[in-house]
Design a binder for these strands. Sequence first.
DNA 1: GTCCGGAAAC
DNA 2: GTTTCAGGAC
Length: 304
Amino acid sequence: MAIIVPCLSPRNDMSSICDELVVWYGHARRDLPWRAPDVTAWQILVSEFMLQQTPVARVAPIWLDWVARWPTPSATAEASAADVLRAWGKLGYPRRAKRLHECATMIATEHDDQVPHDVEVLLTLPGVGSYTARAVACFAYQQSVPVVDTNVRRVVARAIHGRADAGNPSATRDMADVLALMPDDETAPVFSAALMELGATVCTARSPKCGVCPLRVCAWRAAGHPPPAIAPRPAQRFAGTDRQVRGKLLDVLRTSTSPVPREQLDVVWLTDTAQRDRALDSLLVDGLVEQTADGRFALCGEAN
DNA sequence: GTCCGGAAAC
DNA sequence: GTTTCAGGAC
């Protein structure tokens, strides 16, 4: 009698990879708060917003406070944009906070306060792109869809294709690769979480810990760990950029409970006044900061 | 393709 | 001091 147990019998390399990953994940997984069993789809969506370009260690405490304060989309939508920006704190890329607030409003008003299930619908939400839509569909709703972030792309590039990193090939191609590896059943979320976890903790960009990797077969290791084929793009710096200036300006406004006069903002960046003005203007354009009738500045939606 | 934060690891 | 990151919008 044939018993079909996807992912639990080493029929070939692919099911073997899945099997090894899931077993390893069972004991190596980090106990992250958004992985608890009673976490809602909305709270998972909040975690994915916060985790965009931001390490786990910095997200965890903010996320815990956030979901306790605003447990549902409607509760988040009812908060003022300014309070949302303050709660976001120094997580970085504050446009994400604004988009999360807009996303909450759209779900509350157009989706009956329920996070959509379908990837196509999720993709219509502000701040939700290819990765976040599929992460929610998979982790919140147990759908067997490929969840491909930078870490997953790197693992696939190495283990399957024998390359040091994802390189140029499109994320679409990587999604097809992951789809081929995935179990098409209720174990998909565990598989995807395991793949991401491997990329985050073992198969890391800088110094991969191949000595503790659970995969028996890895094309990159088999090929002798060849270096990246293309030179890595010159790293974006941070010191002295508009982003740093924006961060300093926004920090003043987050801290203040009342609108701030121009002079109080000017002092945070004295080395380049043109750059400072440009940064402030971009915050106004982004809808993160607004100017009061008397010419002072405040976080957007401060009065609401 | 470029822009958008911030902190921890080198 | 410099590099390194769990994306998305334009």
